[in-house]
Design a protein around this nucleic acid. Sequence first.
DNA 1: TGATCTCCGATCTAATAGGTCGGACTAAAG
DNA 2: CTTTAGTCCGACCTATTAGATCGGAGATCA
Lengths: 157, 157
Amino acid sequence: MLKISKKADYALMALQHIALVQFGDVTPGRVVNTKEIAEEYNIPLELLAKVLQALSKNGMIESHNGPKGGYLLARNASHITIAQILESIEGPLGLTDCSHEKDGDFCMQREHCNIRTPLLKVQDSIYQLLNSMTLQDMMGGTPLITIQSPSTQGVNR
Amino acid sequence: MLKISKKADYALMALQHIALVQFGDVTPGRVVNTKEIAEEYNIPLELLAKVLQALSKNGMIESHNGPKGGYLLARNASHITIAQILESIEGPLGLTDCSHEKDGDFCMQREHCNIRTPLLKVQDSIYQLLNSMTLQDMMGGTPLITIQSPSTQGVNR
DNA sequence: TGATCTCCGATCTAATAGGTCGGACTAAAG
DNA sequence: CTTTAGTCCGACCTATTAGATCGGAGATCA
Ligand code: FES
Ligand code: FES
């Protein structure tokens, strides 16, 4: 349940890769093209292209056309949150269809609905969670890897 | 994004309704049948039936057959969490396809994947959030319902 | 100017969620 | 005991969306 789409998945990988290249110690400021990412992570080329297009349109990255072209991070990695990335691909966060009350878009259950308010509360919590984590954090700003000793292997859960 | 399925949605409504009837002041211990819930919330009858079947199979509710039959909450409302309900309908929580590492089920990106660990962390946080909220909480343990006076009727959005 | 590499829009296919149908069972009423 | 009405239950079909693909337009560098 609560699975994110493959496209969103690819978006996260691509962005982190770009961030790594751009702010890494090796070749800072280098542009990175679609093909490079696709081959590195075994992602269908054309599909990844569409994902990057969407990210570009939403202001996450900048596109540079022509030969030697490619993509560049639009702003610092610490200012790009997971929530922003996911919303660029999958649209606004919403646990139910009726989360965003547009006029005339009533779900049949609205009138007698007993779960709307609590669900919105949960939804908001999730959003804060996703919006508090940035690309910077994913790259290694915070120690995310949990080392487990061989003796406890396969024990947890 | 992160939308839960209609079926899960219906499950939440149904369970809360049952809990309300069973632990409410009016008719405690009464069994409630599928038709009653379907009509109350405008849910397709047959579909709701399937949802309740799944909930029964997963030990959330008990089914009583025959005339005057129906469903009954399996245990106290404070011991049923949102996470349990959702997992009964939609399967285990997992942001990506490769969250639960079954043998031989490797995603193409696994080897060079750079987002696995951080995503698992996020996923765990979400799970704790969902697992900390119970039916009891949804019913009114916390004041969730907003009362509106007749004069303001039809004004809000 | 020419060639090459990129972005970009529209199109097709596979998977899944949403919804529907008829049969099997149980318990109460006659 | 028999009948009968109302329930749960499993398998089936359809509509929507996500996943993946194709070919063309535009831009840059040699
Ligand atoms: S499900 Fe739409 S308002 Fe509750
Ligand atoms: S997406 Fe499968 S391991 Fe990262």
